[in-house]
Design a protein around this nucleic acid. Sequence first.
DNA 1: TGGTATTCGTTGAGGGCTCAAATATGAACC
DNA 2: GGTTCATATTTGAGCCCTCAACGAATACCA
Lengths: 164, 164
Amino acid sequence: MNDPGPRWLSTDEQHTWRESIEAWQWLLAAVDAQLQRDSAMPLAYYEILVRLSEAPDRSLRMTQLAEASASSKSRVSHAVARLEERGWVRRTDCPTDRRGQIAMLTDRGFDALTAAAPGHVEQVRQVLFDALSAEQLRQLDSISAAILAKAASSPKDADGCPAG
Amino acid sequence: MNDPGPRWLSTDEQHTWRESIEAWQWLLAAVDAQLQRDSAMPLAYYEILVRLSEAPDRSLRMTQLAEASASSKSRVSHAVARLEERGWVRRTDCPTDRRGQIAMLTDRGFDALTAAAPGHVEQVRQVLFDALSAEQLRQLDSISAAILAKAASSPKDADGCPAG
DNA sequence: TGGTATTCGTTGAGGGCTCAAATATGAACC
DNA sequence: GGTTCATATTTGAGCCCTCAACGAATACCA
């Protein structure tokens, strides 16, 4: 007789929760849709290209790429397979670990990224930076950091990054 | 010779942007994964069940259900079809508009929702409310409201709610 | 009344994601 | 060396979502 029962959300909490998920689901969907519409790639692919473009030699081991783009190994494996079909990424064997694969951004991939970037950045401005004040952006920064801290401290699942 | 070029993000902006999407993608994935794992339903289905449970007669026209759950008509149509297979929702013809369909939450659907709720709420607490201070929650509230205001003012696509 | 536009809801193809299982290699230990 | 456990990556099934197209019914309007 000691189950405290679920700690239900107060009215205020419920309001904050619903508003927040709706806002961020919309924002993510809007960004994804713009990329899909104008550059024929989902946000997840864009992020993979960005991480590769920033890496030395524009190359990354699959696992590192998964970590850098905050997604699961499985997702990255599927995604890189698609990106390779488009000629945007090339996979080669890792010389020091025969289990490993190295994903490298090709010149065509870099061009695709360069072409997609301006429209994407503009969309990000519209949905986020034009909507918030400087003060709110600072607040958002620390809020996001707090959430990520929670994410880091919670147990990860077997495969990739998501979930808790 | 008057193209200002893309308004690139400053270092700070880029930091805020990357941190924010990573945080919210993780949070949404974590909530979705908990529901999937413990109650065998995605967050989108849970939200549909919630909106129905709150509606008079636990019933809503398909379009209203789409608006209430902030998703596209197509998504809701597919989802309700699945939920109907599970016996959680029943569709009936609308008496006043022969194009219309009314989705009603069944008793079994209500039970499923009741069973799923405590674990879901607990997860929401863990990923959001336990991570943020009261002050941050207030800030988040107004940040989300600002984003949603932007969403409301931006042109909607043909089908449903998402995208901008 | 007839014509046109709009709304309601569904459908199917296509694609991305997750999950669990499988393969192959590396590391550690005795 | 051989066992055993851990790591790296892939694979395929199954599911959800988007997009575009569709049929059907209603609204608007001359």
